Simulated assay, not measured.
Amino acid sequence: MKLYYSPGACSLSPHIVLHESGLPFEAVPAPTKTKKLPDGRDYTAINPLGYVPLLELDDGQRLREGPAIVQYVADQVPAKQLAPAWGTMARYRLIEWLNFTATELHKGGFSPLFNPAMPDAVKDATRTRLLQRLQWVDGELAGRPYVLGDTFSVADAYLFVVAGWGKYVGVDIAPLQNLTAFVARVGARPAVQAALRAEGLLK
């Protein structure tokens, strides 16, 4: 398998999950700004949408969208318990968290703050709404180490990545003690450290 990623982007989530899975894979940098691969090819020839992540399977099939990719990877190694079994309420809770993180935090919250063309008034309103969402997450994490309870899942990888963007866009999560502890807890996992190191994000 090949994972196309851009350092520190949302593709860090499947990068972490692949390390957690123990499956063999190749990580290929696909910078979102230049769209140029290490071999000089144009990344848009592989993903016409131009963004990451993208997972290329050994049979040549390509899978886009982080929440889909992480669930696919988790289902290849059920013994690792990276995702609950299909058909269980726990699986739907996982999907609920992945969708919440994708829409309310990632695209609806942080993405506008990274856009230099976005007016300051819009950014201020976005930060306010985002902090409200993060306060809700903080409450959900009270008394449990991971979003689904005691077991690390692919939803934790995604939340960890997105919550880590606050320091770049003026969103301080330090007062959110449960979320801050969660980020530290997930960040200490060996697979997370390996992914961060591979992306040049860990000195």
Rank of each mutant, 00 (worst) to 15 (best):
Met1Ile: 05
Leu3Met: 07
Tyr4Phe: 15
Tyr5Asp: 01
Ser6Pro: 01
Pro7Ser: 14
Ala9Lys: 04
Ser11Cys: 10
Ser11Lys: 03
Leu12Trp: 04
Leu12Ile: 07
Ser13Gly: 00
Val17Phe: 11
Val17Arg: 00
Glu20Leu: 11
Ser21Lys: 06
Ser21Gln: 05
Gly22Ser: 10
Leu23Gln: 12
Leu23Thr: 01
Leu23Glu: 09
Leu23Phe: 06
Ala27Asn: 02
Pro29Trp: 10
Ala30Pro: 04
Ala30Asp: 02
Pro31Tyr: 12
Thr32Gln: 12
Thr32Phe: 12
Thr32Pro: 00
Thr34Ile: 08
Leu37Gly: 01
Pro38His: 12
Arg41Gln: 14
Arg41Tyr: 09
Ala45Asp: 15
Ile46Cys: 04
Asn47Ala: 02
Gly50Gln: 07
Pro53Leu: 02
Glu56Asn: 05
Glu56Gln: 15
Leu57Asp: 01
Leu57Ile: 10
Arg62Gln: 14
Arg62Glu: 02
Leu63Glu: 00
Leu63Met: 14
Arg64Asn: 12
Gly66Asn: 15
Gly66Asp: 13
Pro67Gln: 03
Ile69Glu: 00
Val73Ala: 00
Ala74Lys: 05
Ala79Thr: 11
Ala79Cys: 02
Lys80Pro: 00
Lys80Tyr: 05
Lys80Val: 07
Gln81Ala: 14
Leu82Val: 04
Leu82Met: 01
Ala85Asp: 04
Ala85Val: 12
Trp86Leu: 14
Thr88Gln: 02
Met89Arg: 13
Met89Trp: 13
Met89Pro: 05
Arg91Ala: 07
Arg93Gln: 15
Arg93Lys: 13
Leu94Gly: 03
Ile95Cys: 07
Glu96Asn: 04
Ala102Phe: 03
Ala102Asn: 13
Thr103Ala: 13
Gly109Cys: 03
Ser111Gln: 14
Ser111Val: 14
Ser111Lys: 13
Phe114Lys: 03
Phe114Leu: 08
Phe114Thr: 09
Phe114Asp: 02
Phe114Trp: 06
Asp120Phe: 09
Asp120Tyr: 07
Ala121Val: 15
Ala121Cys: 08
Val122Asp: 15
Val122Leu: 10
Val122Thr: 15
Val122Met: 12
Ala125Asn: 08
Ala125Arg: 10
Arg127Lys: 15
Arg127Phe: 06
Leu131Lys: 09
Gln132Ser: 14
Arg133Val: 09
Leu134Arg: 01
Gln135Arg: 14
Val137His: 01
Asp138Met: 07
Gly139Asn: 08
Glu140Asp: 02
Leu148Ser: 00
Leu148Ile: 08
Gly149Thr: 10
Gly149Lys: 07
Asp150Ser: 08
Phe152Met: 03
Ser153Lys: 03
Val154Met: 04
Asp156Ser: 06
Tyr158Met: 01
Tyr158Gly: 00
Val162Glu: 03
Ala163Asn: 06
Ala163His: 07
Ala163Lys: 01
Lys167Gln: 14
Lys167Ala: 14
Tyr168Thr: 11
Val171Ile: 08
Asp172His: 08
Ala174Phe: 06
Pro175Met: 05
Pro175Gly: 00
Leu179Val: 03
Ala181His: 11
Arg185Asp: 06
Ala194Ser: 10
Arg197Glu: 15
Arg197Leu: 14
Ala198Cys: 08
Gly200Ile: 10
Gly200Pro: 00
Gly200Lys: 05
Leu201Val: 07
